[in-house]
Design a protein around this nucleic acid. Structure first.
Length: 237
DNA sequence: TCCCTGCCATAGTGATTAGG
DNA sequence: CCTAATCACTATGGCAGGGA
């Protein structure tokens, strides 16, 4: 087996997101080949098969109804295999789905920094565009308590103002998007509100159903995918 | 039914080797 | 030395089979 640059980039990415489903792999494989459209499901499965054969990735189907979950093995990245039965697994798979779509848009993906102070908040990921603009990415499939939102949005506003963060983007299911949108309306100053973008991109089971692109349309930065205004349906929920 | 897998044929690419 | 044939891989998609 010949390990290509893209294979290595994929393993690096899996090292960051830990888990991904086949759909996320389709986007990540495209993004790391500088392509904007996802590769076929078949292709993603075969990529997985190719790397699984030499022990660099492993996969499982925790519930047979859903697709496979793929992760990089200890041999590949020096991290132990994830526990697929934790509560947070669904969330991690969703984060990977979002992350992979950022890759396909030419962003790179990083883990957010560890909380630096009391009341600090660590986002699910940081997407960095080609010209270095950073946006915090949150994936929320269940609403948090109001009190949590107070702390979190204070932190977002701080980071927008002080840490050079361009935008904060939430990817939610529809009910959660409404709640997050309402919180953002209340807690973020009017003239900063447009820098919090909320997309209803998942169904309640955590499957991506979003309009590919909606969440990027409000982009505050011109690159890499300059697009006009945020579509209304994603806006104030 | 949905989803994954194996097997198949085909095409493109880059490296290596045989022939002139 | 240059070109062409060959080889090893990867990419893509069709189709049948199998499990829950």
């Amino acid at each position: 087996m010949q390990l290509t640059e893209r294979d290595e980039a994929m393993l690096d990415w899996l090292s960051v997101v830990r888990l991904a489903d086949m759909d996320a792999l389709r986007w990540a494989l495209a993004g790391l080949s500088d392509e904007a459209e996802p590769v076929s499901l078949r292709r993603a499965q075969q990529w997985t098969a190719r790397l699984a054969e030499v022990g660099l990735v492993d996969r499982a189907r925790p519930t047979f109804r859903d697709g496979s979950i793929v992760w990089a093995t200890h041999q590949a990245i020096g991290k132990s295999a994830p526990n697929l039965f934790r509560q947070t697994t669904r969330h991690e798979v969703a984060v990977a789905a979002v992350s992979a779509r950022y890759l396909a848009r030419g962003y790179t993906w990083e883990r957010d920094r560890k909380p630096a102070m009391r009341n600090d908040h660590q986002a699910d990921g940081v997407a960095v565009s080609g010209d270095g603009k950073r946006e915090l990415v949150e994936v929320e499939l269940t609403p948090k308590t109001n009190d949590r939102y107070r702390v979190i949005f204070e932190n977002h506003v701080w980071r927008l103002a002080r840490e050079g963060v361009e935008r904060v983007v939430y990817f939610c299911d529809a009910p959660t998007s409404r709640i997050v949108g309402r919180e953002a309306d209340v807690r973020v100053f009017r003239d900063e509100r447009h820098r919090i973008v909320i997309a209803a991109a998942f169904d309640v089971r955590g499957k991506w159903v979003g309009d590919e692109g909606a969440a990027w349309r409000g982009s505050a930065s011109p690159a890499p995918t300059p697009l006009p205004e945020l579509a209304g349906e994603w806006g104030q929920a």
